[in-house]
């Protein structure tokens, strides 16, 4: 069979996928770009052209800057913690102990729990008057009075990150564990014979095998964390005092609660650009580390 025929056939087979993606994602994206230069309302007026006004207004607003900072903090901390705990638990589950298969099976539980259910569950746990966390900590004696976990800017963000980490670190665990199991036993045995300590063994024997898959997990989780909406919407709606308001919540407010589709679109595109730049720089990083580790 000839090359051009294969290529044409391949395009034909891809047509349904590409068609749907262009119709439901490509076209709205172009439309959003158009909207972002107008002062359109959500319903009714289609608005007039206002140039870069929306962008200028959004970028210079303190609301945006604060929200960007909040989002970055949430993304960086939650992803970092998830990666560390994920790798540690994968190392643990790679050991031989009784019940390790049951424990591995359990790891899927938080990951399978719907995000909204997870958020609801933790909101109940953190309840300031009747929550399980306050009850447990006072009964153990760690705190002497009930706290308002989701009511203080300091603890609200941490509480959110814990809830998010609990749900998402098992994903890292499962990916790392699968990669660990691919490490040939004789290489490890050889390192042991050579007298390499546990840290050296991890760095030079284990890490090269798992760094590739981990990088993919890192990229996926970071993108997810930057787009975060569900868990915050259910747990705090951005409060207290907007200390947990992330970019997606801000866009929702602007475009839907205040019905300013135009400036909402410009804000959404700024977020898109940020995520794209982030993902692209990660991709470069992935290629580099994957190359050097092997």
């Amino acid at each position: 069979m000839s090359g051009p025929f294969m290529t044409t056939r391949a395009w034909l087979l891809m047509l349904p996928l590409l068609g749907v993606m262009i119709a439901v994602i490509g076209w709205p994206l172009v439309d959003t770009i158009g909207l972002s230069f107008t002062n359109a309302k959500l319903v009714g007026t289609s608005g007039t052209f206002v140039g870069f006004d929306n962008y200028a207004k959004m970028l210079s607003s303190t609301n945006f800057q604060r929200t960007l900072y909040t989002t970055a903090w949430f993304a960086i901390v939650s992803v970092a913690v998830e990666m560390v705990i994920g790798v540690l638990t994968a190392l643990l589950l790679n050991q031989e102990f009784h019940g390790r298969f049951v424990l591995r099976a359990l790891m899927i539980l938080p990951w399978a729990l719907p995000t909204v259910v997870n958020a609801t569950l933790w909101r109940l746990i953190y309840n300031p008057e009747y929550g399980a966390l306050n009850a447990a900590l006072t009964q153990i004696g760690i705190i002497d009075s009930y706290r308002s976990w989701l009511g203080e800017p300091g603890t609200a963000m941490t509480a959110l990150i814990i809830a998010d980490t609990w749900k998402n670190f098992p994903l890292v665990t499962l990916i790392a564990l699968a990669a660990l199991q691919a490490v040939p036993r004789d290489i490890r045995a050889a390192a042991l014979v050579d007298g390499a300590g546990p840290l050296a063994r991890f760095r030079y024997v284990t890490l090269p095998f798992i760094v590739g898959p981990l990088m993919v997990a890192l990229v996926l989780r970071t993108i997810e964390a930057f787009k975060v909406f569900d868990i915050i919407w259910v747990m705090t709606r951005g409060g207290p005092a907007n200390s947990t308001r992330t970019l997606s919540i801000l866009v929702y407010q602007e475009a839907f609660s205040f019905q300013r589709a135009g400036s909402g679109a410009s804000l959404a595109l700024i977020v898109t650009l940020l995520v794209t730049v982030l993902a692209a720089s990660y991709a470069v990083l992935v290629r580099k580390t994957a190359g050097s580790a092997r």
Binding site: P128, Y146, S148, L150, G151, G239
Partner: peptide, 15 residues
């Protein structure tokens, strides 16, 4: 009650 800052009406009622 310092928890008032995260209460809605139903929380007030419960307390």
């Amino acid at each position: 009650n310092p928890n008032s800052k995260e209460f809605l009406e139903e929380d007030v009622r419960k307390v």
